[in-house]
Write a protein that binds this DNA or RNA. Sequence first.
DNA 1: CAGTGGTCTAGACCACTGC
DNA 2: CAGTGGTCTAGACCACTGT
Lengths: 243, 243
Amino acid sequence: MTDASSRYARASLRLDGEGPLYAQIRRAIAAPIVAGAWRPGEAIPFERDLCARFKTSRMTVNRALTMLANDGLIVRTRRKGSFVAPQPSHHASFEIADIRDEVETEGGRYSYELLTRRLESGVSVGLGDRTLYLVCRHLRDGAPTLLEERWIDLAGAPAAVDQNFADERPNAWLLHNVPWTRAEHQMSAVNAAAAVARLLDLESGAACLVLERRTWRDRTPVTYVKLTYAGPAHKLVGTFEPA
Amino acid sequence: MTDASSRYARASLRLDGEGPLYAQIRRAIAAPIVAGAWRPGEAIPFERDLCARFKTSRMTVNRALTMLANDGLIVRTRRKGSFVAPQPSHHASFEIADIRDEVETEGGRYSYELLTRRLESGVSVGLGDRTLYLVCRHLRDGAPTLLEERWIDLAGAPAAVDQNFADERPNAWLLHNVPWTRAEHQMSAVNAAAAVARLLDLESGAACLVLERRTWRDRTPVTYVKLTYAGPAHKLVGTFEPA
DNA sequence: CAGTGGTCTAGACCACTGC
DNA sequence: CAGTGGTCTAGACCACTGT
C-alpha cells in the first residue's frame, strides 16, 4: 500500500483557481480523502513531487499539508511521507461564548445575581486546599438561564479573596485578572436536582446541558466551574470544513 | 489605545528557547494576552517590528501571528495592524470519535443492531425529498450505549439505497463511500422519551446527551443524524492550549 | 498613496528514520 | 546514509484600507 506505484497511480489533482494557492492545494488533496477515493493509510505524494506538479515552492505545499495534518485528515512522518489518516473522525470546534455576550447578542436583557460566596477548605474538585466557592445565576430578560457553580483556587488566584463578586461576574474578573494557559472542557447531560431546578425555574428532573471547565496556569489549577444551562433548549453549535 | 505609544509601551517579549522559533513567538505573544496584561483591542507590534525584535524573518513571525488569529486570540486587519481579540471567549475542540472505536479503545466489546430501515418521502429534517431512514443501536458489552437515528438524502448519496445496513454501519459506509465537505454539529440535553428510554435501557425521562450532525457535499445535503447517548454518564472532552 | 497583512519564491540546513 | 518532513531565510509583489 505504501509502494511507489500506489503513490502515483491516482487521478490527477486539480486546482480550482479560487483563492490562495495553498488553499487550492489543500482542497485538491482533501477532496479525494473525504470522497473516499484515497483510503486510510494510502500514501500522499511527497512534498517535492507536489511542488513539481503544481509548479510552486515547497513552503506553499508544506503549508497546505500542515493544515491538513492539523485537520486530522493526514498524518505525516519524516522519511516515510504523508498518509491519509487511519480514522477519519469528525471533530467539532465549539465556541463557548460568555453568557452575557450571548444574551445581549440575541437582543435579550442580561442580569446577574450572586447567590453564595464562601471560603472552603479541603480538596473537593481537584483544586488546592483553599478555595473560594461561588454560586451565581445568570438571567435573560429576568428569567434564569444559567446556573454557575465555581471554585476558585486561592493558591492560583490569591487576589480573588478580596473580590466580593456581587457586581463583577467571576468569569469577567478572572478573564481580566488571572492568567491561564490551559483549559479543559467536558459536556454532559443531567437531570436537574430539586435545588437546581428551583433556581432555574425548571421542573425537577428536567434534562440540562452541563458544561464543566477546568483552567490551569502552567500546572497550577486556577478554577473549576460547572455551568448548568436552563432546560434542553440550550444548544451549542460547531462546524467543520476541511476546505 | 491604538496610538504608537501603546504599541510599544509594554513589557519586553521573551522567548523561552524551547521548540521551534514560531512556537516560541506564539507563546511569547499569547502569554500577556491570556494573562490580561494586554487588554482586548490593544495593538500588537507590527510584523516587521517583531522581525527586528526577534531577529527573524517575516515568514516566521507571520506564521506565529496567523496561528494566534486562528486561535481567536488576536484579530488582524490590513493597514491597521493586529489587535488583541475583543472577546477572549473560550473555545473547545471536541473529537467526536466513531462509537465503535470508542468502545473498543476502552476495552469493551462492540456490537451493532439495525432496528429500522425505511424509505421516506417529503422533506422532514432539512434534507431532500427522498430519504432513507435508519434507526440503529450500538452496544457496549451487550448493553445499549448509543441510539442512532439517521436520514440519508438519496439525492446526495444515491448508492445508499442499495445498502441494507444490517451488517455495515451507516457511519462506516458513509465515511468510505460518500464525499462530504462540511459538517455542522449541535449538542443538547433531552429527557429520554418512553420509546428511546426502552431502547437504551433507561428510565423514561432520564437525561441524555444528544449530538446532531448535518453533513453536506458542497451545497448538497448528504445526511442528518441524531445520536442519543445512553444516560448522563457519557461525556465529551475537549481541551485548548494557546501554547 | 502609504503602510499593513496575505501570499509566495527559491533556495537552505537540520532532525529524524528506515534501509 | 539517503530521503523525508520541519523549519527558516531574505527577499518580493499584491490586496486592501485608512488618510
